[in-house]
Amino acid sequence: MTSERSAYRRVLRRETHSSRTAPAVVTAVVAIVILLVLAVGGVWGLLDPSIRGTAGAWLDRAVPPRNRPEALVIAGAVAAVIGLVLLALAVLPGRRARRARTTERLALLVDDGVLADAVADAVALRCGIDRRQVATTLGRSRVSVRITPTSGIRVDESAAEAAASEAVSALGFTVTPRVHVASTGVVA
């Protein structure tokens, strides 16, 4: 039992956070390519010193000496921005849009998109409007529901609120609903 609980804790913590595997693998592959190019170029340069002159001439053609400072600034700025992105990926928690809990038997993981759909469906059903007239955004602790009413028909905000929180609590999660009804309706 305790091992099951600890397995659930570990799995749910990992599943609700990004693994950072994709950016790490991309970074590693790019680094491998750069290192291999440097190594091959280095060996070539040692074995055949004339290649250094050729490489220098190629560089002069690609970036003429008088343009060097600008090229250096641009390349440096690009590198610094990529470096900042990688730093952010390394340091930020990387929460995914999912929520998790354990039941007596299971670990339950629900994508926020699924819950948002369920909320929109429930609100549309309760208010008697078309599903396309309801837009929901699910945050960590609140759900915002934007309703575009049918022209001439009043929407009961408290009923919409109740429907939204019931849809989420049916799965055992709690969020605070915030309903916003548009001032102009549509013909539906």
Binding site: T21, V85, L87, A88, A90, V91
Partner: peptide, 29 residues
Amino acid sequence: TNRVLNRALLLVSGVVLLVAGATCVAVGL
């Protein structure tokens, strides 16, 4: 997957790129 290792690699490459990039910009300016 060892996620600490993922983040460590990202951290090291990020710091290297940031320092190298900032140096290049400073030298160019």
